[in-house]
Design a binder for these strands. Structure first.
Lengths: 237, 237
DNA sequence: TAGAACAAGATTGTATCCAAGTTAAGGGGC
DNA sequence: GCCCCTTAACTTGGATACAATCTTGTTCTA
C-alpha cells in the first residue's frame, strides 16, 4: 500500500468524529480504539496527536484524549473567519486568476444551473451539487495563490456540522440564491472587480453560516455528558 | 514532571527549527535526532508528526521528515492573511472589549512610550519592547472572542523569520511610527470605532511585513542544498 | 458516619524489537 | 562501456513489553 497505517487511521478517525460517531466528551481509550480500528496503539497515538493539533480532540498529559465539543458560538466564529478569508481570497484572485481557472468556475456554475433548473431539489442531485460547490470555492482559493488561506479555510472545515460536507439541501430558494451568488462572483472575478468579488463572497459565506447555525442550533443545545468509549462499542450509535 | 517527554521534545524541536538551527532541506534522521535530544524514537516521532501538521517539516511515507524551506513569498503571504485576521480581530473587538483589556492595552502603550522617549534604541530595551508588542496584539485578539483568530495568527508565527520573536530593532523612526499606530488603534477601540481600528491594524501589520521582507530578503535568497542530519552534528552551526 | 489514606487495577507514556520499505553499490548481461 | 538487475545495508513504521501515572474502591480512624 502506498499509504501508511498512521495516515489511514488519522483519516478514519477524523471522518468518524466529524460525522458525529463519537459524541463530544467521549474519552478515547487507546487500547479499545486501537482494537476497533485494527491497529496497534503506536500509529493510533500518532494519529491522535495530529487530530489534537487540528483541534478535534483535546489532550491532557497522562490522562489521554477526549473528543472535543463545539457549541454554536464556535461554529459562528468559524464562519466569521471563513467569510473574511474567502473574501480575501477573492480580492487576491481577481487580478491574477487564469483563464483556465475561470473556465473551471464557469463549468461549475453552468452545471449547477442545470441541476437547479428543475425547480425542485432532487436528493440524488445533492452529492453532485455539493461537489460543484466545493470545487468552486477551492478554485478561487487556489487562484489567490496564498497557501495559508487554503490551509486555514481547510481547518475551519474540521468542525462537526461546519464542514462543507454538511449541506442544507431542502429549501430551493436558499440554494438558488446561493448559486446566484456564484454567478455574480464569477462575473466580478472575470471583470477584475476585486472589491466586488470580496464583498459578494463575504456575504455569501456569512449567510451560509447564518443558515447553518439557524438550522443546526437545536441539535447542539443538548450538551452530552462525558462518555467513555469501550471496546464493545461499534462506534456507530 | 508535569509535562510529558513528547511535549518537551516537540517544543525544543520547534524552537530549534524556528531559530534556524536546522537548515531547510535537512533530512531529520530519527535515530540520530532521538539520541541528540536524549529520548527514544517513539516520542520523537509523535513530535515530528505534530510539527508536520504545523507545516514546519514535510513528511513522506517511508522516507521520513525533512525541514521545510520558506521563501519570501511564503512570508509575504503569511503577513497578507495576518493583516486581515488581526484587522478582523480589531473589528470584532471594538464593540465588546472590556475595561480591563483596555487598561492592559493602555499599559502596553504607556510603557512603550517610556522606552521610546529616549530617542535612541537601546539594545537592552529590545526584549521588553518586544514583549509589550506581543501582549498588545494578543490582548486585542483575545478581545475579539474568536478562538480561530488566535489559532491561525499563532500558526503564521510558525515560520522562520516571520515569527514575532524576530524584531527589526534598528531604525527608531520605524519603531516610533509602529508604536504610534498602537496609540491610534487603542484610541479607536476605546471609542468603539471598529472600521477605523481594523484599517489601522491592517496597515500596521502590512507595513511590518513589508519592512521584514525588505530586511530579510537577502538572507533567504540562497537556497540551501539538501543536507542530512547526523548524530555527530550538534544542531548549532 | 464522614473523611483520608492506602492499595489494586487500569491507562497512558516510553523503550525496545521486528518487519517492511527505501537507498545505494556491485555484478552481470548486452 | 553503459544499463539494468540483484542484493545488502540502512531507515522508517508498527507491535509488543515495561515503567510511570492516574483512578477507584476499600478499609481504617476520628
Amino acid at each position: 500500500m502506498a499509504t501508511t497505517s498512521t495516515q489511514s487511521t488519522a483519516e478514519i478517525l477524523r471522518e468518524r468524529i466529524l460525522e458525529g460517531s463519537f459524541p463530544p466528551g467521549t474519552i478515547l481509550r487507546q487500547d479499545a480504539l486501537a482494537q476497533l480500528l485494527g491497529v496497534s496503539r503506536t500509529p493510533l497515538r500518532t494519529a491522535l496527536a495530529e487530530l489534537a493539533r487540528d483541534g478535534l480532540v483535546t489532550y491532557e498529559a497522562n490522562r489521554g484524549y477526549t473528543v472535543r465539543g463545539f457549541d454554536v458560538n464556535d461554529i459562528r466564529a468559524a464562519f466569521e473567519v471563513r467569510a473574511n478569508l474567502e473574501g480575501l481570497a477573492c480580492r487576491l484572485a481577481a487580478p491574477r486568476i487564469t483563464g483556465e481557472q475561470l473556465d473551471r468556475l464557469q463549468r461549475c456554475v453552468t452545471e449547477g444551473d442545470v441541476i437547479l433548473s428543475k425547480g425542485v431539489l432532487d436528493p440524488d442531485d445533492l452529492a453532485p451539487y455539493r461537489r460543484l460547490n466545493v470545487e468552486f470555492h477551492e478554485t478561487i482559493i487556489a487562484a489567490s495563490a496564498n497557501p495559508w488561506i487554503a490551509d486555514f479555510v481547510g481547518r475551519t472545515h474540521n468542525v462537526p456540522l461546519a464542514s462543507d460536507r454538511v449541506f442544507h439541501w431542502e429549501d430551493h430558494a436558499i440554494i438558488f440564491r446561493s448559486h446566484n451568488d456564484h454567478h455574480r462572483i464569477l462575473k466580478a472575478l472575470r471583470d477584475g472587480q476585486a472589491m466586488r468579488a470580496e464583498a459578494l463572497m463575504w456575504e455569501h459565506v456569512t449567510n451560509a453560516g447564518d443558515v447553518l447555525v439557524e438550522h443546526v442550533a437545536p441539535k447542539i443545545t443538548d450538551r452530552q455528558a462525558p462518555v467513555t468509549f469501550h471496546s464493545k462499542d461499534t462506534g456507530n450509535p
